[in-house]
Design a protein around this nucleic acid. Structure first.
Lengths: 227, 227
DNA sequence: ACGCATTACAAACATACGTATAGTTCTCTT
DNA sequence: AAGAGAACTATACGTATGTTTGTAATGCGT
């Protein structure tokens, strides 16, 4: 990890460097400027704010990113902001920095999923390493989320009946059992099942079941076991 | 969470209280004794050690447990011991306690998966709450591990050929494709597949595929896609 | 030498799955 | 009013899956 950012915008890391955004929330303007400079020097895009409120009011682009956050802030504190972001379902990886931190603070931040917690003074490279780790975490999270979202949108192209059939098929029921469950003729189930396979772009039943797992689709087990 | 341990050995938490073991590693004998007392008072079983080495040399029973670990220890430090346990693939949840901790220490501990990091002085209830959280985490981890182990042992009852068939079936191949892949007649695959279903106690193909997921069974995708 | 598990295949049958063609009914939109 | 899509069924056919019964070669331990 160390040294990945010491030569800006070159070689194999060019893509990661140019695409990631580092958000900075820090009330001290001189610290904010020096952080901004540091990140820009290694080719990272930076967007800095003086308070949590400012960042909440701005439009956050939907790209790989991380947040360097001062713990002590006027208004909403860094830890409160972390909680607030979680409540808003915003899962940007956070690196805390602080001048006067303590252990309970650190524990709360780390329990809340923070990537790192650095107390000043720290070496630039420590922060850069943390940023690399954080953006990498975000990249992976986004990739996983994109996969789910794609499947979800495919699933939503299914008619309600097709969705119902898919759920029961994924639960392991035979066509005739699905038909009984839904009050349909078996032939109808067969046809809907065909639609499901086509619309979900599943090449096999195994595929479809894995998709169901990813989507978290399941039915009440009591309905299966009584067969 | 708070107050779950303030009346020992009664009500719905009796099971969790009596079955969990709290390991304590603390060199200061008076602290060790007071911790032991505290946990015993709320009905927890306690096994205390004066050093990490002592605990490593003892036989650790295979039950739900957690570890209350002093950061500063003679010989192997608490943080080193955490690393060592991870290296040995021992995933007991750790609660650190310390008299003179600092932030980097805390961060390292939490990054390493610690449940909590308490600096003295702390309230007894804080520690007890952390122990509840830690044992609960261990209980869940053990449950998940047991599930995998059960499936694994079922899988090991399969003959090599049956295992191979299961892998390819779980990958979504048709019987004839499995047969071609393994150089078998289709009828042979059908028979082995029947054995697989019976031995794995799978009631449906969906079941079997979920088992494969849990077991992490997969084959080179190139073999499927070229069909 | 004997039993036993494994590997392997065949014939035959029953059941399950998938698709094409064709048609009815209903609702919602243009 | 016409068209589109959803929901639903039927007939018919072809393929896939699963099970039973039977056969046979191999290898391994006692």
């Amino acid at each position: 990890m160390t040294g990945r950012f010491d030569s800006p915008g070159e070689g194999s890391n060019a893509e990661a460097s140019t695409k990631a955004i580092v958000f900075v929330v820090e009330d001290d303007i001189s610290v904010r400027r020096s952080l901004t400079n540091l990140f820009q020097q290694v080719g990272l895009e930076v967007v800095a704010f003086g308070s949590a409120r400012e960042m909440l009011q701005s439009t956050i682009p939907d790209v790989t990113s991380c947040l360097v956050l001062d713990v002590r802030l006027p208004g909403l504190s860094g830890l409160d902001y972390q909680t607030e972001l979680a409540r808003l379902n915003i899962h940007i990886p956070i690196i805390f920095i602080t001048g006067h931190g303590d252990i309970p603070m650190t524990v709360k931040a780390m329990k809340g999923g923070a990537v790192d917690f650095l107390s000043k003074p720290f070496r630039d490279q420590e922060l850069l390493d943390a940023v690399v780790a954080a953006t990498e975490r975000d990249r992976k999270r986004r990739e996983a989320q994109r996969t789910v979202a794609n499947l979800q949108s495919l699933f939503e192209t299914l008619s309600p009946r097709e969705q119902a059939v898919m759920k029961l098929v994924a639960a392991g029921l035979m066509n005739k059992q699905v038909a009984a469950e839904l009050g349909l003729a078996e032939i109808t189930v067969k046809i809907y099942r065909g639609h499901v396979m086509k619309k979900m772009r599943a090449r096999s039943l195994a595929d479809l079941i894995r998709m169901s797992e990813t989507l978290g689709i399941c039915v009440n087990r009591s309905e299966q076991t009584q067969v």
